[in-house]
């Protein structure tokens, strides 16, 4: 079988690829202007659990594959699913997103354009962004009913990022549109983070202070084009911490506190990521030269 001929060699090659640190900072929702390094592949999980008012505890899970196409273009695929206590577990869809760095050099503020197509259903509980009037009520319906709602949406973000004296600041402005119907929905996310130490220690270590990044992010909806503003919108404030091991694997955790009556109360986000260096080069070499002779 043609597929089998390639799958095993790829899996074997991946075992020997070098790993490097996944470096997107401690945020779950807010994007910075940092791009994936060319030909590197980052694999990450972004999970969220919570118990909405009037509903059952749920676990939303998104698995992310992020690839650096060029120095100015990063492409990602997300696969989403969720499980709800006393209900069911299901795959809820996929997202394909692309980020384009607009300026070739580093400035005091750096814009990145983000474009995404998502094909998910109404049962999705990944909560990777909050827009429009999203809120607690979106999380309490039975999965069998919610999954009937198809969400084929286009989303654009303007990402602004800055680095200043070891701090990272990022601001995201979000516009989303269901391609069939529904109005334009808007949202925002902002964040600030800093490593615990700015200089690296000389020795390889898991618990060096520079391996920890702490920060806070805030995100929420801004209504629709017909009703723009804060009325009936949900907003969250989330302290966050990331810990990168010497091997390059990064763990992140962040409690999100809902600050309006429409919000879902307390959400706990957690995830792990690791980056496979030069994945693209290794894969290309495998297919162009299956014998392994360079």
């Amino acid at each position: 079988m043609r597929l089998g001929r390639y799958v095993l060699p790829i899996a074997g090659a991946l075992t020997f690829l070098p790993f490097c640190s996944a470096g997107e900072g401690p945020f779950f929702i807010t994007y910075t202007h940092q791009m994936e390094e060319p030909r590197n592949l980052e694999i990450a999980t972004k999970n969220v659990t919570g118990r909405p008012r009037g509903g059952n505890r749920f676990l939303g899970a998104a698995t992310e594959f992020e690839y650096g196409v060029t120095g100015w273009w990063t492409s990602e695929i997300y696969l989403d699913g969720q499980a709800t206590r006393g209900d069911s577990a299901l795959f809820t869809g996929y997202r394909w997103e692309n980020r384009f760095r607009l300026l070739p050099r580093e400035h005091w503020i750096n814009p990145v354009l983000y474009l995404e197509f998502e094909n998910i259903n109404g049962a999705d509980k990944g909560l990777l962004e909050v827009v429009g009037n999203d809120g607690n009520d979106d999380l309490i319906g039975p999965n069998a009913d919610a999954r009937r709602e198809k969400k084929r949406e286009l989303e654009a973000k303007l990402i602004l990022g800055s680095h200043y004296k070891g701090w990272t600041f990022a601001e995201n402005f979000i516009a989303e549109k269901n391609i069939r119907h529904e109005p334009y929905e808007f949202g925002y996310a902002v964040g600030a983070s800093r490593p615990l130490a700015l200089s690296a220690r000389a020795q390889r270590c898991n618990f060096c202070p520079e391996n920890f990044q702490v920060g806070v992010e805030a995100y929420g909806g801004l209504g629709t084009h017909a009703g723009f503003g804060l009325r009936d919108t949900s907003h969250y404030v989330a302290p966050t911490v990331a810990w990168t091991l010497a091997s390059g694997t990064t763990f992140k955790i962040s409690p999100s506190f809902g600050v309006t009556g429409t919000s879902a109360g307390l959400l706990l986000r957690f995830g792990v990521s690791y980056e496979i260096a030069q994945f693209g080069r290794a894969t290309r070499r495998l297919f162009h030269n299956p014998g392994g002779n360079d």
């Binding site: 470096g23 791009m35 650096g68 100015w72 580093e106 680095h163 070891g166 990272t168 700015l198 200089s199």
Partner: peptide, 17 residues
């Protein structure tokens, strides 16, 4: 960095690093 040549920016690393 040098984006045209495939070298990304490492501005996310603090200055001392």
């Amino acid at each position: 960095g040098s984006l045209r040549r495939g070298m990304p920016s490492f501005a996310h690393l603090p200055e001392p690093q």
